[in-house]
Design a protein around this nucleic acid. Structure first.
Lengths: 139, 139
DNA sequence: TCTAAAGCGGACAAAATAAGTCCGATTTAA
DNA sequence: TTAAATCGGACTTATTTTGTCCGCTTTAGA
């Protein structure tokens, strides 16, 4: 339905928070508490961000997460891909056999073209935009 | 997950087909047969297109559907909206009360900005692109 | 060295959404 | 009058998303 998943929303909130906290170590519990996010859920999301290298995880007591790099270096596509894997506008891009229309599909090529344009957009949308337009911005 | 629904895929196939058939009347049964689409499902989709005025429905025996206007006058956003209603990137745009994070959400404004940019894109992507890049084009 | 606070990750459950089906009603050409 | 259509509501099924549970490992600090 062309909608952002909760997981991506949570990831964006977390990244923006870490950016505002000047890259301090933040635990999942703190983030979950502050933004009313189910903590186990957020835990999974943070793990995904860590696996993709957007954040660093610090294990053990007083551990948590930290931005690996400034938000300035991240784009929307990075978050999408970290959390949901490669962006595919249609399922047949991943599993052609799952599509009953595959053999006779007249829209595959144009849909691919759209997907690529959206990919370009996602890669061009910088996360620092979030900082600038967020309500809790520090001026 | 930012994915096109089957309903939208079916709508695009049908519209493209009608364009190629030079605006002749086509029944749901024909379309469903040609593209291996469950016919009741396609029926619903065609009804949605008719309600939004993208196609005209002809009732009774030998009835069916017909493009209301040339594909040249349609954009991707028209189809999305006809089939799925207004484009909303996040659920809180429709039902704020459904979002547990609404009161503390730090990403609402930037996400809205993204939604608007995507809306612009959808409104700019012309369906005639489908005609041009479709495999079964007539040259 | 022990303990508590953290992340890790697999399995599972619940909820929401999307996809598909069924059926009776209406419309209309032949 | 009949058959071929669309219409639309109710329903079921499948899939995906969201959320939960639990035992594991890691590490700072008492």
């Amino acid at each position: 339905m062309l909608r952002l998943s909760k997981r991506v929303e949570y990831a964006l909130m977390a990244l923006l928070h870490m950016d505002e906290e000047a890259d301090q170590v933040v635990s999942v519990a703190e983030l979950a508490d502050q933004y009313d996010i189910p903590s186990d859920m957020l835990g999974k999301v943070m793990q995904a961000l860590a696996r993709s290298g957007l954040v660093k995880s610090i294990h053990g007591a007083h551990g948590g997460y930290q931005l690996s790099t400034s938000l300035d270096n991240l784009v929307l596509g990075d978050v999408l891909e970290a959390v949901e894997g490669p962006f595919r506008l249609v399922k047949c891009q991943e599993t052609p056999e799952s599509c009953d229309q595959y053999k006779v599909c007249p829209i595959r090529e144009p849909v691919l073209a759209i997907q690529n344009q959206l990919l370009d957009y996602l890669a061009s949308f910088e996360l620092k935009t979030f900082r600038e337009t967020s309500k809790s911005k520090k001026i």
